[in-house]
Structure formats: structure tokens, C-alpha cells
Amino acid sequence: MILGLALAVFGVAVPFIGSPYMMGVVFQVAMWIALAQSWSMLSATTGYLSLGHAVFYGIGAYVCVLLTGTLPFELALLAAAGSAGLFAALVGMPVLRVRGPYFVILTYGLSELVRHVVMRIESALGSFGRMIFDVPSTEVLLWWMVGLAVLATLGAYAIRHSRFGAGLAAIREDEVAAETVGVPVTRLKLLAFIASAIIPGAVGGLALLRTSYFEPAQAFDPVISFTIVTMALVGGTETVRGPILGAVGFALLSELLWSSLPQLYMIVLGLTLIGFILFVPKGLSGLLGRIGRAA
């Protein structure tokens, strides 16, 4: 709680005290927190691991690039979030019928399918990447992103501590049993799926405004999906602070290594992921809890 608050305050204040570089780092950290928290609304609560959240990010970016210029950017972002949620609502029913590892690869496949369809559309339109102009200032974008991170964290917290969250937890523990005792399994899963899609849509839009360049292969990059999962798992999926810890940790690691040694960064990412799955199932959050109790 205190950690989250401190981070949020720091995020809002950073344009006044920090360098442009610092602002870039904070933007990234806030972005990954927002994404990982949104992911956890579905995947940490129900156990349906989504490996396709890049699709919502990409849809958000695409909608945003099509609309900026005609609409003020706030409305474009709203539309981006709405479209991502709408897409989740449309595909949710059939997709959520599929369980276990099949759900994981299905979400991945769906994300890649949409990516290739958008790439095809764009090349049929003769566009190879779109530039946008008149983007809001970096400070404004940063505040929006920090706002989304806070919103996602509060959302994830609210879901976990509600009847809705209890229903989702029942699905994770035993879906058939939950259905038998009257939990509206299908509706809850669909709602969680939509909830976890909306903020990533807005994040995609914001990230696009920041780079002011849209290229479908990048906007729907599956590495985004994988990074979200890695951050959430390493941070720990059992608590709301888990995704925050994971996002902060990896964003800092990426600042240290990515620009100079991208391959090494990816290797460290892989090793960390394997190490945490095998030896630290509760993630950084669980580790901190244990240290806290021992002290």
C-alpha cells in the first residue's frame, strides 16, 4: 500500500524534479505496472493464463493512431480502451471455453492472428508504418500513464476483495465445483476478461502517442505478452503488490542492460523466469513476506 502510494507520488512529481531520462524510465515502469495489474485481473484471479495481452495493447495503439487528428487525444484513448474491451467481449465466450494449457496457446495464437491481419490490412492500404503529429507533451502522457497504473492497481485490489473476486477464486480452485454450487462461471470469466483488456487498450494508445509511430508488427509484438506474464509471475500472483514488484524490478533491469546488452538482458530474463517458477512460486512478494516475518 505504502509502496504503491510512494511510487504514484514519485511518478506524478518526476517531471518537476527529474531529467527527461528519468521521466522515460518512470513512464516505462508505470506502463508495465498497468499492464501486469490488468493481466492479473483475469489470470491471477482465475488461473486462466493469458499469453495474448499484446492483442489489447495493439488494438489500443491501432485505434488511437486512426483517431488522433480527428479526435482530441483523451477521446482517442477512451476509444482505444473501449475497443480493446469490446474485442474481449466479442471473442471472450468461445475463447474462455478452452482451459488449461490450451487457453494459454489459444490466447497467444489469437493475438498473432490479429497482428498478421492488421499487418495485411496495412500493407493492402499501402501504409508501412504511420507517423502521428501534434502529440501531447511528455509530462501529460506521463501523468496519464501513472494514472492508469494507479487505476489498474486499485481495480485489481477491488476485484480481489469483492464477491466478484471470490467467485473468480472459486473458478481457479475448481471450476466444475464452483459451477455446481451456483457461481455464474461463464459470466464472471467474461467480465474478468473484459476488465483485464480495457486498461491495456488505453496503455497501447498512450505508448503510441509517446513514440508517435505505429507499426503493426511492433504494436502487437508477442514479446509484450511474454514480458507481462514474466513480470507478474516473478513479482508473485497472490498479492496486488506482486505485479508492481515484478514490473519495477524488470524495468530497472532493462534500463541497466537492454540498451547495452540486449541479448544478455533476455538471457537474464529467461533465467529469472525459470528460477522463480522452480524455486520461488510465490514470487518476490512472497519472498518479501517471508523476510518480513523473519525480521
Binding site: 511474454f226 509471475l233 529467461g270 533465467l271
Partner: peptide, 11 residues
Amino acid sequence: SLILFYGISVI
């Protein structure tokens, strides 16, 4: 296993 092997794949 899927995530685990993703780690191996990245490495």
C-alpha cells in the same frame, strides 16, 4: 511448463 520452456527458448 509453457512459461518454463519459454524461458529456455529465450535463453
